[in-house]
């Protein structure tokens, strides 16, 4: 199963590193990354393979949320299917 991680917040050094480290720690493979910095706002969307945390997806999402809170960012992890079903016919 694949999921989408979105990171939004003020641009600081090492955001991508922190998120990808947490992914690596959980055996979550990063498939695609797009990011943009608008003025000083940072927005990153990452497509990941979460097969390794399939059973404990909620815990992984919670870890990401907590990381966001610590770093002053808003991080969401959601299943890819939601976006596909909502925005594609």
């Amino acid at each position: 199963m694949r999921a989408v991680i979105t990171v939004i917040g003020k641009d600081t050094v090492g955001i991508l590193a922190k998120v990808s480290t947490l992914c690596a720690d959980n055996d979550v493979n990063i498939l695609d990354v797009t990011q943009s910095v608008l003025q000083d706002m940072f927005a990153m969307v990452t497509l990941v393979d979460v097969a390794a945390v399939d059973d404990d997806f909620a815990a992984f999402a919670e870890q990401m949320r907590a990381l966001g809170e610590k770093e002053g960012l808003v991080i969401h992890v959601m299943h890819e299917e939601i976006f596909n079903s909502m925005h594609r016919i």
Binding site: V4, D32, A43, V45, L47, H76, M78, I82, F83
Partner: peptide, 16 residues
């Protein structure tokens, strides 16, 4: 890959 603004729209719908 999904469109970033679509993704953000969905998240906003649920969160806010």
């Amino acid at each position: 890959m999904l469109n970033v603004s679509d993704i953000l729209e969905t998240i906003k719908m649920i969160q806010e």
